[in-house]
Design a protein around this nucleic acid. Sequence first.
DNA 1: TCCCAGGCTCTCT
DNA 2: AGAGAGCATGGG
Length: 276
Amino acid sequence: MLTVKVKNKDLYLYGTENFSLSETLDCGQAFRWESDDNGRWHGVAGNKYLEIYRDADAVIFKNTSLSDFKNFWYNYFDLERNYGEIIKTVSQNKTIAEAIKFADGIRILNQDPWEALCSFIISQNNNIPRIKGIIDRLCENFGENLGGYYSFPTAETISKLYVEDLEVLRCGFRAKYIIDAAKKVTDKTVDLEALRGASYEVALESLMQINGVGPKVADCTLLFSLGHIEAFPKDVWIKRAMDMLFDGELPECAKEYAGIVQQYIFHYSRIKKIGY
DNA sequence: TCCCAGGCTCTCT
DNA sequence: AGAGAGCATGGG
């Protein structure tokens, strides 16, 4: 049972279960969060800067109003979803139960769809430090200055640019993909918001109209921003882990929650270095 | 230095 | 329809 208190402009959230900030914010689903030496996380989402950390019995949202929490962060951190129940269901499989022991506090973020799409286009054939650097430069050069931090630039803003304009990002061959995505999102060739209610198959096909968007990038967008938790992004780690642990096929009890289970297995496979 | 990074496109069978 | 090269860039 979640309860909330506001003290001195900060919001205290009590009663959270299965909510680890580090497991959630540092598992490769979002690229704009950093932690400091004290284990406090700070980042930008929804044009808002947030500092967030945990003390003995609360998750503390610094300088956050009740309305910002209710209208934005509650959904962003997927606090409505009962992860305990999902873990119970998918733990019918012993291997999944074992994997979850290593990170039972992962939550799937509900990010802005355009930001997720653009970020995962940048992520292809790339590594996390560089992905973060490119996204930082994207926001600093084309986002809005919100007072020491920058918003993620809108698709409309990017749609008006040329490949040469993106040279400051040093993102290589991905620049043309970013611009194609921005154009198709802006002119509603790909109507991102409409994909929330679309079937998984329709949504996947729609996203893959974009040059540079294949199954992996499309699945990440669907999972991390559009509420399609049945999406199952398949990267090199997951492919190896799936072959080793499940002979390539997800157990029946996990299929409804494939995307969430994917995160548990991804985390587990990297800790255990499965396939190496 | 050289290898590779949470892929995708293009080309060639 | 399946396999493999090439892609921009820079961190380790």
